[in-house]
Simulated assay, not measured.
Amino acid sequence: MIAQDVSIQQALTTAKAYRARDSSKASVAIASNYLISASCIVIVQWASGTSHLSAAGSRALYLLSTVIIASRMRALENLVHEASHHNLFPSAHLHRRLQFLYAFPIFRVLEDYRRSHLVHHKHLGDPQKDPDAVRLYNLGLDRLPERPVWYLLGVPMTGYLTYEYMTTTFREFWESPSSRLSKSVFWVVVMLAVGCTATLQYFAYYYMIPFLVILPVMRYWAEASEHLGLDLRRDFGSSRTNIGFLHTWCINPHNDGYHAVHHLCSQIPFHLLPEAHQHLMKASNEFAKKTAISYGMLETFKQIATKKTIFRKSNRTEQPSIAVSLTQHT
């Protein structure tokens, strides 16, 4: 135990060297998501107005655009996660003041998310206290190896994840007293702009469908990939590193896939996580040996489908001590 504590301390000391925030990188990250989404809309609208594509081609291009736009919404969710650790800007106050750029558009309130997410870090793997573990149990994902096809592919296709989102995070966004005025003003302005420009149809095509249909599936897979199939009682190896192409660009944007490093030291900002990971892989034998790494979605699915998740506690006779909602997720 003493050797393990020393190893953890050495790895943590190494990780703490990568805690520098950078406002310019954070600003570019936020802006890039809007730029990519806007580019998708322009391309699809331009293509649909020409004779270069068949009807089937136009539908395929639109479907691709919704996936890309949903991935940028997922990216904004990851930036909310970064902001909850004050990892975007050097000034902690800026995170709350600028949340209309990255949190309100996806129905998140930073202070609510931060409050519950820090509980996840403090009680990782405890099905009574960790909100993420509570939800994994409620979804039945602790039994994923028994029915992997159903849990990985069947559940996302049922539409239940959209229903769950609407009855938890979306509802709580409006019911929460946090930032009540600013979030209301934001969405009033957005809907007035949509109404005044007669773009409700485009709002539905390019916002509502990606947000309500595709994003819940991406979020579900991302959350499942972080800790399932691992021993959550361990200091090392309780969080998976997902760094494949689809992870990087769709499921875990903005380096959110470097989850092992993040749980070791949550103060490392997103733009330094890859460098910190590479350094730790060389500097810490325990980290390199015990960190689960996946380089693709299929590899992740295989890992979580073939290994049972070991939670910190197994007694589920009591009711969870905290409320469950999507607001609490990474």
Results as ranks from 00 to 15, higher is better:
A292M: 14
L232D: 09
N242L: 05
P216H: 14
V194A: 04
L192K: 01
S176Q: 03
I214R: 08
A260D: 09
I243Y: 05
L272K: 13
L273S: 05
H279M: 03
M191P: 07
D256Y: 00
E223C: 09
L264C: 00
L228K: 12
A222H: 07
R171P: 08
C196H: 14
Y205V: 03
I293G: 11
A288N: 05
Y202T: 15
G257I: 03
N252V: 01
A260F: 05
I209L: 13
W187A: 06
G237H: 04
I214D: 08
Y220S: 04
I243V: 14
H259M: 00
C196I: 13
Y202W: 15
P216N: 13
T199W: 03
F173N: 04
P269S: 10
S178E: 15
A222F: 14
M281C: 01
Q267S: 09
Q201C: 05
G237N: 04
E172R: 10
R233A: 02
G195Y: 10
S178T: 15
A292T: 15
F287I: 04
V185R: 15
N252C: 03
T199A: 02
T199M: 04
W249Y: 02
L212E: 13
Y220M: 02
A204V: 14
W187Q: 08
S179A: 12
W187D: 10
G244Y: 08
